[in-house]
Design a protein around this nucleic acid. Structure first.
Lengths: 339, 339
DNA sequence: TTGAAAGCGTTACCAG
DNA sequence: CTGGTAACGCTTTCAA
């Protein structure tokens, strides 16, 4: 029966109050075998002294933190937000807390997060990188905790992985527009030097080919992934001698910019020009006209990634899992009939 | 010179490699006084063995975690998202990691978060409660770590606090509508039994009084804080014998619903009916017509809360801080001239 | 079933 | 300036 002088209430405080050893308290608290009588006394003591176990001490002993981190570019981006929303409940159900890392589109930050895994402040990580460099690969291989990657990943990486095929997603949209008798379908893409930008352009070409349409270089523009970027590109497009009768934008923000440009030009959507976006964010549903958009299943990817991580955490040696989410066309008014 | 058998690389591994004591390694790592030579040897050893300090052990010793939590209802809500975006960089600059708690509009969850502070897994908490019950107050008083509260708080609470005067914010909007010659100004409010709902209603009455307008009970409706809630209420409003010529909605989502209802009714905004929202989220800017909205400074509140918390963390005994953010009317097209 | 005691990986005190 | 060592609060053997 040791007395402590400090004000902190520890397992020792409980032991003293219950008149048992700290070992017994620990056992009761962890639901291990113990005498009825002991259990009661410990539980009473816990309440009486208002004991709450110290997580640092527990972590140090068990080598588990009960925490998982999610690292992405910027939570302001609707796609990442959707992921967080899906990840959160899964982790919570599994008894894990969620830590957020915004990497601000900085590769070095992503690497740092991977490195910091050595501090063991989390049990695992969900990483959604902009693109995967050789440095990523190197760090992923030596990561000190399980990492689930959302996004494209080289086969050489040993990590669990969730991805979406955005390229066929774009083709889906082009196909849809062609089916609705659009023949001059433009692409407002993001920067070409990004992975998403390249994938969308490729999907655009695939779609045209499937629909039996020729690619017209005048109908492809690259801009920032923003409302303004989309608006500028669309203005240029709509002022051409032979303007498009449909515009596919590489994300919903750009698509909103396209809608704006169409309104400025006094054009009716979808009467004069159809518009389709990508990501199917909240913005798509609340836009006017409601925006047809290709869903890349951000929520689903988040949920799956969280589930994969929890499974890996409870079964470290299971085989590596790769899962692919299918894109889905969500049709709304903006791609309706031409007039 | 102790050898370890385990595979974990600890401070002892470094000490062995550098041929110094673990005490010296610790000193060098923490930038305390040490010999040039020693410093070099330790740093070399650290790199050589790839040492990363264990955060659980450090926390246990120092009683600091380097983590801060932010608890709010649901990060899907644009206002909370804005807060997170503002909180993140401040914490990061202060060397803290961010932990996220979604309480799902559950008072018990908020209480649990407060209680769990006893586990000491964070150094502090930013709490944005739906409303503050007596139980909140009780827990806030005995909280085991500094808590900064965003929102209304009884004077009896010892916590740092950031709030916004939403009531005068609403009055601002009503005033603006009246200035633009609107005389039948409706209120689409959230649930009356919520703090925000009450504040908005009061602000609405203030605004009418200031503008010298009579309150018409037919022009006040309560609904959910959602697009659908706003749409339903607006439909009812617009079908009345004497419909409103302006509608103030308690948040942007509801305002989008109002816009939708107006379109369905074939009414022009702002020609036939002006619409004003609240929160000034991204949705307001991208809506059509662009939505006039009252900014409640979510970003600013988040940033301030984070700053207050960091200051409190470094100076625990400073006097309690209360700061109020001013609402701001952001005028866009939806509240333009009547026809 | 229980208690004593040995760590987990750090930091910080105290001698030297 | 340095090394030995005692904590920090908990879990988990090992004996009793």
């Amino acid at each position: 029966m040791t007395r402590r002088t400090t004000g902190t209430t520890t397992i020792q405080t409980v032991a003293d109050a219950a008149g048992v050893s700290i070992a017994s308290v620990s056992r009761v608290l962890n639901g291990l075998t113990a005498n009825e009588e002991t259990i009661k006394r410990v539980n009473d003591a816990v309440k009486a002294v208002g004991y709450v176990p110290n997580s640092a001490a527990k972590s140090l002993k068990t080598n588990q933190t009960g925490q998982v981190a999610f690292a992405m570019e910027n939570i302001g981006n609707a796609a990442y937000l959707a992921m967080v929303q899906a990840i959160q409940p899964v982790l919570r159900a599994g008894g894990y807390r969620l830590l957020l890392h915004s990497t601000d589109a900085d590769v070095q930050d992503e690497i740092d997060v991977l490195r910091s895994l050595g501090q063991r402040y989390v049990d695992g990580l969900i990483l959604c990188p902009l693109r995967v460099t050789r440095r990523h690969v190197a760090e992923l291989k030596r990561a000190q905790a399980p990492v689930v990657v959302i996004g494209q990943l080289p086969k050489s990486c040993p990590n669990d992985n969730v991805r979406v095929a955005s390229r066929p997603g774009v083709a889906l949209a082009i196909q849809h527009l062609a089916d609705n008798d659009r023949t001059r379908i433009a692409l407002v893409d993001g920067p070409v030097d990004t992975v998403p930008g390249k994938a969308r352009y490729a999907g655009y070409q695939d779609g045209l080919k499937q629909a039996g349409l020729e690619e017209d270089p005048d109908l492809v523009l690259f801009a920032d992934f923003t409302v303004d970027g989309g608006a500028k590109a669309a203005r240029a497009l709509l002022q051409q001698k032979r303007p498009p009768d449909a515009i596919f934008a590489a994300n919903d923000l750009m698509a909103l910019g396209v809608l704006q440009a169409a309104r400025e030009a006094g054009l009716d959507v979808p009467g004069d020009v159809a518009v389709v976006g990508m990501d199917d964010t909240e913005l798509a549903a609340t836009a006017w006209p409601p925006l047809t958009s290709v869903s890349l299943g951000a929520q689903e990817r988040g949920r799956l990634a969280a589930e994969l991580l929890l499974e890996r955490l409870s079964e470290p040696d299971r085989p590596r899992q790769w899962v692919t989410v299918e894109p889905r066309l969500v049709v709304r008014a903006s791609s309706g009939e031409a007039t």
